[in-house]
Amino acid sequence: MRFHTRKWVKPEDLNPNGTLFGGKLLAWIDEELALYTIIQLENTRIVTKYMSEINFRSSARQGDIIEIGIDVIKFGITSLTLKCEARNMMTRETIITIDHTTMVNLDADGKPKAHGKSAIEYIKDRL
């Protein structure tokens, strides 16, 4: 799994228990999955269609650095299916896993659009 993004857990990210609020982590993950998909499919019109079971495995505290990792599972005709893990960068302890998230490529009218991609592309290979 490739870890793309790091987030620093700040006081405003905490729940009343003093640990990272799950909704904040899910927002970070959804944003990272969208950015990854935009870059892969070369289209800014992307939506999250589906997220499988979300498994919270451990917590994070203020000052922790969280890494978000992504793997591509499948290229569909109009979609990209991804696997995601967030972990504590220092301890490597897994905080959350999401086995399947489907991101859909849209046209200007907001309808699913074929993207024509079948494999991961790296920016360095496009230049």
Rank of each mutant, 00 (worst) to 15 (best):
T97R: 14
T102G: 07
L106C: 08
E67K: 09
D71I: 01
L106Q: 04
F75D: 00
T97L: 13
H100V: 14
L80S: 07
I98W: 02
K74G: 05
I73W: 08
T81G: 00
R87M: 10
R92I: 04
Q62P: 02
I66Q: 00
V72M: 03
M90R: 15
K83T: 08
I68G: 10
G63V: 05
F75I: 06
G63K: 05
D99R: 14
I73V: 13
L80Q: 07
I65W: 14
K83V: 11
N88F: 00
R87Y: 05
T91I: 11
D71W: 01
I98E: 03
L82R: 04
F75L: 04
G69S: 08
G76C: 05
L82H: 05
H100L: 15
Q62V: 11
I95K: 08
I70F: 08
M103A: 12
V104N: 01
H100Q: 15
I77T: 15
K83E: 14
I73M: 13
T81M: 02
L82W: 01
M103F: 10
T78E: 10
G69A: 09
L82C: 05
I77P: 02
L82A: 03
G69Q: 08
T101L: 00
A86H: 03
D99W: 08
R92N: 13
E67Q: 12
T94N: 06
D71S: 11
M103K: 03
V104C: 04
E85M: 11
T81I: 01
G63F: 04
T102S: 07
V72F: 06
R87G: 07
L106H: 02
I98L: 12
G76F: 03
G69E: 01
I66F: 05
G69V: 02
N105S: 11
E85Y: 02
